[in-house]
Amino acid sequence: MYKRKDRRLDEPREMDAKVGIIKRADGSAMFKMGNTIALAAVYGPRNLYPKFMQNPEKGILRVNYNMFSFSVSERIRPGPSRRSKEISLVSENALLSCLNLEEFPNSVIDVYIEILQADAGTRCAGICAASMALADAGIPMRDLVSAVSVGKVGDAIVVDLDKSEEDYEEGSTDMPVAMMPRNGKISLLQMDGNMSKEDIKKALDLARNTCNKIYELQKKTLKEKYMGEVENE
């Protein structure tokens, strides 16, 4: 049976969040999960160019996921890659379901997710940071989006895998889940590996519990920023 040294199997890594870290952005946030740190900046809604991309019925969302070259132990080539394009797309879809873009015809909301430090679960940390940054930018949302990866390491169902667990010799499966915790709707579900139907159900329950914890942290952080503004003076 697989065991963790420093935490329970259903326990996420230590989390931290901050809002309003990038001054020139309309909204920004940092989300940290163990050694994974994601930054997100939101610009807009603003005019969309080239003009042929404009949609007079609703605005569009553009998400750009990028890993800094020094974010992993072996330097990665900077710039877009097949992997970062895929993650940009799935993050965009995960965030799109909570936004109401009909309010911003002909315009665009740009979200930039930058991974400062990677230790597995970067897309989940990125989505958490991006949803907080969107709220910080004052964009109307139906709910915040929380994300966490769950999976199977050896024969145990675990939550929030780190890099050593993803590379576990006896086989591991990792399944990133993003959801809107208020109504429990899932907006991102991917899986790398194999899991039985029962295991997936168990893992999803675990993801739901953890997402609720993340949701509380996101709400608390957002409120604290604006509370602080009230009390500082």
């Binding site: 909570c98 709220a135 109307p140 709910d143």
Partner: peptide
């Protein structure tokens, strides 16, 4: 914050910055 349930029941009316989902009134902005 967005997604926070502010009130329950049809006897409340949503105005700016909130929306109604079923019988709940929910915040859409900070």
């Amino acid at each position: 914050v967005p997604g926070e349930i502010l009130a329950e029941g049809m006897d409340f009316l949503p105005a700016g910055g909130v929306f109604r989902e079923n019988d709940k009134i929910i915040a859409s902005q900070i």
